[in-house]
Design a protein around this nucleic acid. Sequence first.
DNA 1: GGTGTTTTATACCAATTGGTCAAGACTGAT
DNA 2: ATCAGTCTTGACCAATTGGTATAAAACACC
Lengths: 193, 193
Amino acid sequence: MPWEKSFDIDEAIDRATEVFWAKGYEAASLADLLKATGINKGSFYNAFGSKKKLFTLGLQKYKREQHKATLYRLSQMQDAVSAITALFDLIIAQSREDEEKKGCLFVNTALDLPNLDSNTAETVSSALADIEAFFKEQIIRGQKSGDIPKTVDPAVASKGLMTLVVGLRVLSRGVSSSDELEVIKAQAVDLIT
Amino acid sequence: MPWEKSFDIDEAIDRATEVFWAKGYEAASLADLLKATGINKGSFYNAFGSKKKLFTLGLQKYKREQHKATLYRLSQMQDAVSAITALFDLIIAQSREDEEKKGCLFVNTALDLPNLDSNTAETVSSALADIEAFFKEQIIRGQKSGDIPKTVDPAVASKGLMTLVVGLRVLSRGVSSSDELEVIKAQAVDLIT
DNA sequence: GGTGTTTTATACCAATTGGTCAAGACTGAT
DNA sequence: ATCAGTCTTGACCAATTGGTATAAAACACC
């Protein structure tokens, strides 16, 4: 009976998320979002209700489809040290290709948390907790297989590695070059060997 | 001959900087700045010329009066390890007292660099470079006095410590509790012992 | 061909954005 | 007392903010 939606809602969310990602929630204007998604203002509010709802939607979609998927893929690697270094390599590669210097959606949002709602805070916190948990699991796995010394404290080192990731993504937005990011990766490797 | 300014310009800059600090450059509205400084719009433009100029002014003033002064004070401590751990203690203490969750002015600005001018980028980069240089000097000093093992690479570890500081300040804005920040400090100490 | 729905386009809204300007208020020197 | 020079004040500006409303047109199913 009804007319099917003529635009791909999922793709519209992705396009909008990229705008939020690059500019931040506040600075991403409605005009920006409409241009990026290519849909009309009326359709926009019909489909998403408000700017904030779309942001929340995009954040959760990203977490589900990109973030978790990436961590899972890395956790399937043969050995723990490879999995850990692969995450750093991935981030550095992304930074190198990231011409808009968007950085990381979660880190960008994390720094903006005091100006956002508690709902968002929880999503971001749990995303970062996922990264920490990934590191912790890999460290324990590495210790079982003998690749990582028992002297490393998984709880401490995993939080340290997560913090390095966060810092890395900040620096990648205009402070440090790829070469410098490699040094940080070297430091991360030092932590677990 | 002229009528003296009825407000303290230095204090106005400080007040304004706190607003930029808490909200970011874009999100800090003119109305916010006027309310915080307590001066009138006309006087504002008469004194500072524009929002951007005031931001630049505040950033440089902060760097000069707070940032550099703190690093210098810490570098005067008796031993290198104390100096390094004192910086982390200071940051954690600041985070605990920071009820507005402002975080760090430079880190906040660093993450916003793609949306700001190259002038700002340079100021922020050099502020972070100062932190890295501080760590490097202290590590070298610690190695001379035998407090820090020679196996530590000053160039790598100093960048690692700086990255940890940056990450810490992001997490302090709503993700991690003070206790968790202490764990990160423990990781930092591990790096140089 | 209706019916129900979604699209587009446009106009509109109050509030806020950063910024300007002229008029008046004040001071110190003459 | 007056004058020059600076400061403060408040009105004013166009543009933009997120969001609503409304019309007509486009479409799919029965």
